[in-house]
């Protein structure tokens, strides 16, 4: 029920934070504008324990099996996966472009790293997104302070380690103010 705090059932392993799943789908024809983007995004589950996460995650279609323009987001409870959200307005994201067929594996690994607190950047992490597009898929991880270089570098290095990325993988950092300026995410 709305607003009811998600608790950790007895015997289950608590997560450092509660996380909410979101799903958004966009018809490529309609131009991206914040208004309709906000209309298209839906949250569908909040988890507080490792076992609750698996119960929700194991019922979600794998991103690699999605077609068209779809995004899955897993964000800390209370942070909306929108540039304008208070937690995001001074932030940015690391963007990793993946050739088709890799999204599901990398999505699971980046989630496990986030849930397991592997990034060691305090409160900086906001959430992770997998974006399914026609030519390529995109993985991104959002953090709160774009100009906190210590954190953004540590996030990048952790991503390389936990995702076991091929060395030539392109990783770029984009601030949300830049995304708002050119009204494009990537």
């Amino acid at each position: 029920p709305k607003g009811k705090e998600v608790m950790v059932p007895p015997g289950e392993h608590p997560l450092q934070y509660r996380y909410t799943f979101w799903y958004s789908r966009r018809t490529p024809s309609r131009p991206a504008s914040t208004h309709n983007y906000e209309q298209n995004i839906r949250q569908f589950g909040t988890v507080a324990s490792v076992e609750q996460f698996w119960r929700v995650y194991s019922h979600i279609v794998r991103p690699g099996d999605l077609t068209g323009y779809s995004d899955f987001h897993l964000f800390k409870e209370g942070i909306r996966p929108l540039w304008e959200d208070d937690a995001n307005k001074n932030g940015g994201k690391w963007i990793i472009r993946l050739r088709k067929g890799l999204a599901s594996r990398f999505w699971e690994n980046i989630i496990l790293a986030m849930l397991g607190e592997q990034f060691m950047v305090g409160e900086e992490i906001c959430g992770v997104v997998v974006s399914i597009r026609f030519q390529e898929d995109i993985l991104s991880i959002w953090n709160k302070t774009a100009n906190d270089q210590l954190s953004t570098v540590r996030i990048r290095d952790t991503l390389r380690r936990v995702l076991n990325l091929p060395p030539n993988t392109i990783m770029e950092y984009k601030t949300h103010t830049d995304s708002l300026k050119d009204n494009s995410s990537f």
């Binding site: 289950e12 608590p14 997560l15 450092q16 490792v50 076992e51 496990l112 397991g116 607190e117 592997q118």
Partner: peptide, 21 residues
């Protein structure tokens, strides 16, 4: 304060625990 840290193997091992079904 202390942080709750889990490595990837620990999290994957919980996937098939009865509580996660």
């Amino acid at each position: 304060g202390t942080r709750i840290i889990y490595d990837r193997k620990f999290l994957l091992d919980r996937r098939n625990s009865p509580l996660a079904q």
